[in-house]
Design a protein around this nucleic acid. Structure first.
Length: 692
RNA sequence: GCCCGGGUGGCGGAACGGUAGACGCGAAGGACUCAAAAUCCUUUGCCCUUUGGGGCGUGUGGGUUCGAUUCCCACCCCGGGUACCA
């Protein structure tokens, strides 16, 4: 073969990469006046740990293909890159080696940056950012103070995972089967003061606005389930013996007449008081202690047998005045509804199980079909006409009776329509070192005072000992903790908790728009030019938390007047995983394929094309070494064909008078243009575009 | 249990109401070479057949349609998510 026709990726790629760097090919300016359509293409920012892996290569290959497609179809494309560089892996590395997280992160960032260059990803490097850079987290802290001043950030006592051995709070991910992942000690639940963001205020908007964005349906479904909106009623059950009202939330007020007992969560604050003087104190206390000690994994297991203890008290069913026995049982959760339930064993499987075990009455109040098993054997959860209820409701289909019963409760002052969410407020504080310091000062006189904007950032101090000891390692930095109150100037102490890293990544896509602004987190006019992100690309593992948090941030910032957008990401694409021999790649399995050697041997174009060619990119795909070689040959054939055509054909190869051959080729070329355009723009099917 | 995906050649996958298997891998044969590698060309769903050709094929069973991998119903397997949420 003539040497000039050989496909030499090792010569071709550095040549063009150098040219792109020289010409600043992928940089875009914030020119609001510039005519033409803009496009913001963004892949989820990487957590820089060690070397980039094959999943990164897939993520950024997909994103880069989209960015190029948008450019080739006439848009001005913002395609930036940054690093999510706070977080536990760097901190654990510091605990083990003593190397400062700042230094290990710098090394990882360098290797990721090199990877992106070697892969030829078209990035506007002038906008590069890193969330652990004070120039970035200054504004993370500013947003926190904005939220604090509007009551969206608040401090509150909450139950957290606590390891008695390590004397530290653990993140949920650090709890494995109820035990500490490091020392194996059984994890306890402790109540500690924590910082929260009031995301529950946005539950309805987060739900409704899902209809305005073009995301995969299964991701929207996951978010809907996570928010978990339930419509029903709050109904008040009164305990005359203690002269106390106990409201419950129910989605089935139509079954109120079938309530035969009442259950409270072990954590309910009144449980002990209720049992007092009934002779059941001891049994109740023991049961509650056992339930609290039980690992959350086991506690949450729906398949385990129901347990509980009679409290020795009764409440009145507001619809018929019946006295219902009160129990404490761990199948009732304190953090959903009111921590207490009315139990309707005839029409709820869990209540049925409990009633059967404790020999409690089961009263059917919804008519079931003739072929349904009797409710003494199995709860009937379907619909049907009311029975054994009040005369005015008997015979009415339950769906119709439901609102009527709620209206009746409302008139009688015994309840009202209510909506409940599964979504909880976002716990953002961490008792860890390598995170963004929470910019709050505790003053004896003025309480919690936000650090004024002009004093930001609160710079994370250097410390000697990263080991967590139950409070943030920052607490040991006495010089740093001791400060003065911004309001009165008297001695005060800094907040020593740091923020969850999800906070850092909830707004980074805004900073890319205006990354060098030293006067503000961003100029809202500039942000308005680019946002919302037109196409967001990332792993489905972030379908809930990251994507929900970012949506919450945009809505909160919109309410605060800082952004115009209501949603951060107009379109979302979630890529599938690359496996090897059908299994997730992991060091322990020894089946890791690294991008480095592949790119070195075959070139980035081969690696990227192969990854895009493996199959539909939203599905998982299994890596094949033979497949890479096939793609390399494929590109080689294409290169040679093009080179030959360029060398051998006249300058203007399309004759004025088309003959059969040239017409056939023209037709085929136009077919391919159409096919590739549709595959890239509408379907995200890179595999068929490459094949075409 | 519930909610999503997905079952098509030896393999990854195309087609998604109109010639099933694009493209790639693998395999077989051939060219080039002293030889090998690389490269190129040809063939390649399965079965039967002497050429011509014929039969069967998209997890299973039904249905709609002139026509179904594609739409509908029931079911079976595989993968993922999620769960005492009242």
């Amino acid at each position: 073969m003539a040497p000039e026709y050989r496909y030499e990726a090792q010569d071709i790629e550095p040549k063009w990469q150098a040219l792109w760097a020289d010409e600043r090919t992928w940089e875009v300016a914030n020119d609001a006046g510039d005519p033409g359509q803009t496009s913001y293409v963004l892949e989820m920012l990487p957590y820089p740990s060690g070397e980039p892996h094959i999943g990164h290569l897939k993520n950024y290959s997909v994103g880069d293909a989209v960015a190029h497609f948008h450019r080739r179809t006439g848009r001005r494309v913002l395609h930036p890159m940054g690093y999510d560089s706070f977080g536990l892996p760097a901190e654990n590395h510091a605990i083990n080696t003593g190397q400062h997280p700042r230094d290990s992160i710098r090394e990882s960032v360098a290797s990721f940056r090199k990877g992106f260059h070697d892969w030829g990803i078209s990035i506007d490097w002038t906008r590069e950012l890193s969330t652990s850079d004070p120039r970035y987290y200054r504004w993370t802290q500013w947003i926190f103070t904005q939220f604090f001043e509007r009551g969206l950030a608040y401090r509150h006592e909450a139950a957290v995972n606590w390891c008695p051995q390590d004397a530290t709070v653990l993140a949920n991910e650090q709890v494995v089967d109820g035990h500490c992942e490091r020392c194996g000690t059984l994890v306890e639940i402790r109540s500690l003061e924590q910082w929260f963001f009031r995301i529950t205020d946005y539950a309805d908007r987060l739900l409704e606005d899902l209809d305005t964005i073009e995301w995969p349906e299964h991701v929207k479904t996951m978010q809907r389930n996570w928010i978990g909106r339930s419509e029903g009623a709050e109904v008040v059950f009164r305990c005359d013996e203690l002269d106390t009202d106990y409201p419950v939330f129910t989605t089935r007020p139509d079954t109120l007449f079938g309530a035969t007992f009442f259950v409270m969560a072990p954590e309910h604050p009144d449980v002990e008081r209720l049992a007092q003087g009934t002779g059941n104190e001891q049994a109740v206390r023991e049961y509650v202690a056992a339930a609290m000690a039980e690992p959350t994994e086991e506690r949450g297991d729906a398949h385990k047998e129901k347990t509980g203890v009679f409290l020795g008290r009764h409440v009145t069913n507001p619809v018929n005045g019946e006295q219902l026995p009160m129990y404490v049982a761990d199948y009732v959760l304190m953090d959903y509804g009111t921590g207490a339930i009315m139990a309707v064993p005839a029409h709820d499987e869990r209540d049925h199980e409990f009633a059967t075990k404790f020999d409690l009455p089961i009263r059917q109040v919804i008519g079931s079909p003739d072929d349904a098993p009797p409710v003494t054997e199995q709860a009937y959860t379907g619909s049907g006409p009311l029975q054994n209820s009040a005369a005015e409701f008997d015979g009415t289909p339950n769906r119709e009776a439901l609102p009527e019963i709620v209206a009746w409760l409302d008139r009688e002052g015994k309840g009202h329509q209510s909506v409940n969410y599964r979504l909880r407020d976002w716990l953002v504080s961490r008792q860890r070192y390598w995170g963004c310091p929470i910019p709050i000062i505790h003053c004896d006189e003025h309480g919690m005072v936000p650090v004024p904007a002009e004093d930001l950032p609160v710079v994370l101090p250097d410390i000697e000992d990263y080991q967590p000891k139950g409070k943030s390692p920052l607490a040991a930095a006495e010089d740093w903790v001791a400060t003065t109150c911004p309001q009165c100037g008297k001695p005060a102490r800094r907040e020593t908790d740091t923020m969850d890293t999800f906070v850092d990544s909830s707004w980074y896509f805004l900073r890319y728009c205006d990354p060098h602004n030293d006067d503000a987190a961003w100029d809202s006019k500039v942000v308005a030019e680019w946002t919302p992100v037109d196409q967001y690309i990332g792993g489905v593992e972030h379908a809930i938390l990251h994507l929900l948090y970012a949506r919450f941030f945009i809505k909160a910032l919109n309410d605060l007047g800082h952004v115009d957008a209501q949603e951060p990401f107009q379109k979302l694409f979630t890529q599938g995983m690359i496996t090897k021999d059908g299994a997730k790649m992991s060091k322990s399995k020894g089946n890791v394929v690294s991008p480095g050697p592949i790119v070195e041997r075959f070139g980035a174009d081969t690696a990227r094309c192969y990854i895009l060619f493996m199959g539909p990119p939203d599905q998982d795909a299994d890596w094949s070494d033979g497949g890479v070689e096939g793609m390399h040959r494929f590109l080689g054939r294409m290169w040679r064909l093009s080179a030959q055509a360029a060398a051998e054909l006249p300058d203007h190869p399309i004759p004025d008078e088309l003959n059969a051959d040239s017409e056939r080729i023209l037709r085929k070329a136009n077919w391919a243009i159409e096919k590739v355009t549709v595959d890239l723009a509408d379907r995200f099917n890179f595999n068929t575009a490459i094949a075409a």
